[in-house]
Design a protein around this nucleic acid. Structure first.
Lengths: 132, 132
DNA sequence: CTTTGTGCAAAAGGTTTGCATTCCT
DNA sequence: AGGAATGCAAACCTTTTGCACAAAG
């Protein structure tokens, strides 16, 4: 009575996971592809996309929902905020901590020069009310 | 010594602007295209894209920096937050008000069932430091 | 032998761009 | 004329998908 199908830890997945955990840059799919390709030259971009998706569904990695054209992925656990560079698009982390406000942390930890923030709530609209 | 080139208020731009101000749904470019097309059947999608971009640069409208695949546009002035429906992708507004916290407002005003939020800071990373 | 994953290449979705033409001024 | 904007179609970039083959249980 397997509710979920079996997941196989293939070499491709192992390497993707390792590379993703090695960096803290929230790479895009094609960046991950390039990183992985140095170790598995024959891997295909399609496989990278498929596996990132699969692993994100299983909670093994995180798919970032940030503004911008390309999707980004993250090997880190735990909730945290992000900082996006207006110039180069780079995305950094900010721990989600109480007590010390995030803006201050941001300046201190990452050296980012903060210009503002975007707050986006998510949930179910009246029409879709299906959420619960 | 014209720093900026001249901007012409063409019928196409007028209609795009009117339609955008008429709704509060933060339409995507193709939704705007459909709306506008009922009044200007011969307008092209390219023109819509170009004009949305141009008008956003001039601050006449706002290009939303929200998560998701398609870009969205907004005819409203003033800063405000957004709510995104996890089911249908609809994007609603929440005024940025002090005193009454946003979560409460969100439930009251829009009837959204809030499941969480995304906070994204923006600024310049150490490498791009050019911001000032 | 059945299921799951892979590589490859084609398709799809969204946006941008080149070019000849039209519209203003 | 001369610059700016338009329509059309082709190009582009990112992501997804179909399919035949390979690998794992």
């Amino acid at each position: 009575m397997g509710t979920d199908d079996q997941f196989r830890m293939t070499p491709q997945r192992e390497v993707i996971l390792e590379e993703l955990e090695r960096v803290d840059s929230h790479p895009t799919a094609d960046e991950i592809y390039e990183m992985v390709r140095e170790r598995l030259p024959r891997i295909s971009l399609g496989t990278v996309y498929r596996n990132l998706e699969t692993m994100a569904e299983r909670g093994m990695i995180r798919k970032l929902e940030v503004a911008g054209r390309k999707k980004r992925f993250d090997g880190r656990a735990g909730e945290h905020y992000h900082v996006r560079c207006l110039e180069c698009g780079r995305v950094g982390d900010i721990d989600r901590v109480r007590g010390l406000d995030a803006l201050t942390r941001c300046r201190k930890l990452a050296g980012y020069q903060i210009k503002g923030y975007r707050l986006e709530f998510v949930g179910y609209c009246p029409a879709c009310a299906g959420g619960s």
